[in-house]
Amino acid sequence: MQRIPILKMGPYLLVSIQVDMDDRTAMALQDDLMEQIVRHRARGVLIDISALDVVDSFIGRMLADTAAMARVLDADTVVVGMQPSVAITLVELGLALTGVRSALNIERGMDLLRSRIEGPGIADGHHEE
């Protein structure tokens, strides 16, 4: 089974999913993330899914659960880079990913995390919720 690498950068954890994950790989990523949030006392998690050409209900649920669990561990999660075709399909599928914050690309995602953690004034003004 493949494991998705998690990078630590300051108070943030960065994940870029570059492979078509099977369900076990997805669950392992969730476990690894939780473990590392605690180990590094991470305040924010950025998950880049720009390379994913399919997000089905399983991966969608993994993303939503991860965001919710991270919240419990006092870390914010931003999912970045979702492809338009994936977004259209998720809407049709009926998956709203409630509770998951999203940004267009890694830079915007980092801005969003920073604004949450370091207070307002740094982000580009893009609001969520």
């Binding site: 970045v80 979702m82 977004a87 809407v91 049709e92 709203a96 999203s102 995602g109």
Partner: peptide, 13 residues
């Protein structure tokens, strides 16, 4: 409405 929802998933309003 679906487009608005999809844009939101991508991180745009």
């Amino acid at each position: 409405l679906k487009t608005v929802a999809a844009a939101r998933l991508m991180g745009a309003d």
